[in-house]
């Protein structure tokens, strides 16, 4: 029901980016596999969020030359849903109104059945009329997830959406996101290696202007970290991040 109607495209970004003549990255290639999770890993301030904002078509304050294209050759703009570290729930709207914000802004008719379905899916059915100020951090992120799903976009951009949560809630949110966003093309920006290993099919480790690609064995949902493959790959990713 919440799946997008069309074939899910992958995405490819290539080019260079600079802030007032100072290059942030050159000859960069980032490829998101269709219908799976790609994680962009790197320490704070290295430019992860900038890449994500470029794809989302948001203001970055720098200049980019290159191309961002979807594998089905349709425009990327308008097919992206975005979820940030802060939940971005509007404090004057109820949970229900926040979930349906996109349609309300675009003045489209509200799909009430779908709103109810998604609110149930993230477990907030008893809080539909509550305002964000009355919810816990985890509940707020679940509401933000429902709002993201409501957009029905094939490309999902997640900018450290779980980093402000406590470890237990974070784990629950990762599982919920992995379940609800399966079959979408997801880019997750994170500085948490464990999170990237648990969720990603592909990991890009970012360090000063370069991206190193690691493909992980296929897995239906969340990976456990004691998997031998995971044990093997961790030091290799760390060596890139430390470079």
């Amino acid at each position: 029901m919440s799946k997008p109607d069309h074939e899910i495209p992958g995405l490819r970004l290539s080019g260079e980016f600079s802030y007032s003549e100072r290059p942030l990255f050159r000859d960069l290639v980032l490829e998101l596999l269709p219908g799976s999770w790609t994680c962009l890993l790197g320490s704070s301030g290295i430019g992860k969020s900038t890449l994500l904002r470029l794809i989302a078509g948001l203001e970055t304050g720098g200049s980019f030359s290159g191309s961002i294209s979807a594998s089905d050759n349709l425009p990327v703009d308008g097919r992206v849903a975005y979820m940030a570290q802060s939940d971005l729930l509007l404090p004057w709207l109820t949970v229900r109104q926040n979930v349906s914000l996109g349609a309300s802004l675009r003045r489209e008719p509200q799909d009430h059945a779908k709103i109810d379905h998604l609110i149930r899916k993230v477990g907030l059915e008893e809080y539909t009329s509550s305002k964000p100020g009355e919810l816990s951090g985890g509940m707020r992120q679940r509401c933000a997830l429902a709002r993201t799903l409501m957009e029905n976009a094939p490309l999902i951009l997640l900018d450290e959406p779980f980093s402000a949560l406590d470890p237990v809630t974070r784990r629950q949110m990762q599982a919920l996101a992995s379940y609800t966003l399966q079959d979408r093309t997801v880019l997750l920006v994170t500085h948490d290696l464990a999170e990237a290993l648990r969720l990603g099919s592909r990991i890009y480790a970012m360090s000063h202007g370069t991206l190193e690609q690691f493909d992980l064995p296929a897995c239906r949902s969340i990976r456990e970290l004691d998997d031998p493959v995971m044990m093997d790959i961790q030091p290799r990713i760390f060596s890139v991040l430390n470079a």
């Binding site: 904002r53 989302a56 308008g78 992206v80 975005y82 802004l105 675009r106 957009e151």
Partner: peptide
Amino acid sequence: DLARTMRS
């Protein structure tokens, strides 16, 4: 930004 990605 959120409004922008929602094509508001």
